[in-house]
């Protein structure tokens, strides 16, 4: 579609244009700018200051949480990738065509349910008086119940659980178009499975993997519920630091600075992902 075919502006145009323009400018763009401004301010003192950003680097608890959150988000992204590849491969290449529709529904249904309820399901399973403990104690495998919630491993599992679909869908999208005969030919020529994965399947699916990785990373980095409900006292997520500053300490300037640091980190890592793969962000989100 060429732009030359588009109509030129008449006043009726503004009925279409003005509402969305005003709404998003006022309620998305303006608040972001205000957040940025606040992050360079200090309560009670006029003028600009870098105090809030300096506090982040001076206070180890802040930047350690930040680094840990980033590291764990990358770790979760890789775990999700490692699971999503064989899962997508099974559904597109191995499962019978008739079955794959049903299997896809099995895969999707858990993600139709809200994150809060899925996390709650895990809490019922894992908590000290929870289902798994009951079963293990009754079987005599455990002498007494063990608290399996509130630690890093459980939290990471929860994050993998809540974000997995966003890797599976883009990979399936790409893998569907991979020609089976390529894999068959490699088999016939004596290639090992690992070689086939490394030289055929993974390179072919790279665009899907990168899209999935970016979405998963963004979601995990910015997630609040799962770390908050499944993580322990020592597994604070950076979003919880933001929450603490804003709601508990009522230090909005500090919270605003943290918010921007989170934004910078997520944009930076996404930019690196895109650079490595040479992709376009708009394509990725679609």
């Amino acid at each position: 579609m060429t732009t030359s075919k588009k109509k030129t502006i008449k006043w009726g145009f503004f009925i279409f244009f003005i509402p969305v323009f005003l709404w998003l400018s006022l309620l998305i763009i303006l608040p972001q700018l205000e957040l940025l401004r606040l992050s360079f301010m200090s309560t009670g003192k006029p003028g600009f200051t870098f105090k809030n950003y300096l506090a982040f680097f001076r206070e180890p608890i802040y930047w350690l949480t930040f680094v840990r959150t980033a590291m764990y988000s990358i770790l979760v992204t890789f775990i999700v990738m490692a699971i999503a590849l064989p899962v997508s491969f099974y559904i597109t290449k191995i499962a019978r065509v008739k079955a794959s529709g049903f299997l896809m529904v099995l895969l999707l249904v858990p993600f139709w349910v809200s994150e809060l309820i899925r996390v709650y399901g895990w809490m019922i399973l894992l908590r000290e008086s929870g289902v798994i403990n009951q079963v293990l104690v009754n079987l005599g495998l455990f002498k007494q119940p063990v608290e399996m919630l509130y630690n890093d491993a459980t939290m990471i599992m929860g994050l993998v659980y809540t974000s997995m679909l966003f890797m599976v869908i883009p990979i399936i999208g790409v893998m569907e178009s991979l020609d089976d005969s390529l894999i068959e030919a490699a088999y016939d020529l004596g290639a090992k499975k690992i070689t086939i994965w490394r030289t055929i399947i993974i390179p072919y699916c790279m665009s899907g993997i990168i899209s999935g990785a970016i979405i998963v990373f963004m979601l995990v980095l910015g997630s609040y519920l799962t770390p908050n409900l499944m993580g322990g006292k020592n597994s604070l997520w950076f979003t919880e630091q933001i929450y603490n500053q804003i709601i508990i300490y009522f230090n909005w300037n500090q919270g605003a600075a943290f918010g921007f640091l989170l934004l910078i980190l997520s944009s930076l890592i996404i930019w690196v992902f895109l650079k490595i793969s040479g992709q376009d962000l708009k394509k990725v989100i679609k």
Partner: peptide
């Protein structure tokens, strides 16, 4: 933009706004 911003940042910025 709202689709790529972390939710918590939208929440905080709206609260402040």
């Amino acid at each position: 933009l709202p689709m790529i911003l972390p939710e918590i940042i939208i929440g905080v910025s709206l609260l402040i706004f």
